[in-house]
Amino acid sequence: MKVQLKQALLATALSILTISPLHAYTVYVSNEKDDTITVIDSKTLKVIDTIKVGQRPRGIILSKDEKYILVCSSDDDTVEVIDRKTKKIVKTLPSGPDPELFILHPTGNPLYISNEDDNMVTIVDIEKNKVLGEVPVGVEPEGMGISPDGKTIVNTSETTNMVHFIDSKSHEITHNVLVEQRPRVAIYNHSGSQVWASSEIGGTVNVIDNEKREIIKTIRFEIPGVTQDTVQPVGIRLLKDDSKAFVALGPSNRVAVIDTKTFKVEKYLLVGQRVWNLGFTPDDKYLYTTNGISNDVSVIDIKKLKVIKSIPVGRYPWGVAIAKD
């Protein structure tokens, strides 16, 4: 009997180990329709808190020291700064109208914000709470990325179908690369050699060579049993060693796993409904996906390339940021 009990306990312990990530990170998810941020403990995979924020929170990142959460409150035309300890909004940053996505300079300041409504990228000093400048870009700017050396900012404009390369010192556009219809997210790989840009309506991801500023590969997605019009790439994330890229494919409810050497899709993972954005845990072992209409996040085990859990959050989860503690 005792042996049986021990075996049962061991089996339970093993099953917990297989589904529970070992390190406790804190996951923050912005909920566009609830005006909240859901806080998840990555070890227990449970919701531990909900923070009330401004209207229509979308883009969400952490300050470099990870003491603060920065969230675009799109309908309030501000960026809110939340103290992670107290979970209170400590200040709002000037953002320009309808901020959606933003990125911090690798040094932690300034912040580059895309303003969908006035075709600008606003540059904000987050310590002095001051607008440093504005860069006119294409129509409906959206995705923001920055090179690892902080010298170049990339921004996508949805209607102009371009990726703009902006010099972070002069604030001038140096190059424009035409991509497929409705570009959304643009992100540098960790070595800084490539920019990956998703095109939502085009249904593709374009890989741009950073030196030549030319497209070197267009990745297309064909998912068995899924109509092509539902394949709408948005969020992109690359592992720190740049070996694999993960692309959220919107209403197809899939995340594509891409080998970055061959640019071939290795696998399509079925997650929740309308998967928009992605975020890795700091150890690159798990990937969180925000699923826009199933109101949950999916957790993907990177080693096994399997979805291990779906966690209900608020309504219309949009962005995700993950802190080391």
Partner: peptide
């Protein structure tokens, strides 16, 4: 909300492949 005209099996079904 985006216009998704037709829902397909691959968007929803986690079992063995099925034919619509």
């Amino acid at each position: 909300q985006g216009k998704v005209i037709k829902l397909s099996a691959g968007q929803m079904w986690r079992g063995n492949p099925v034919k619509e």
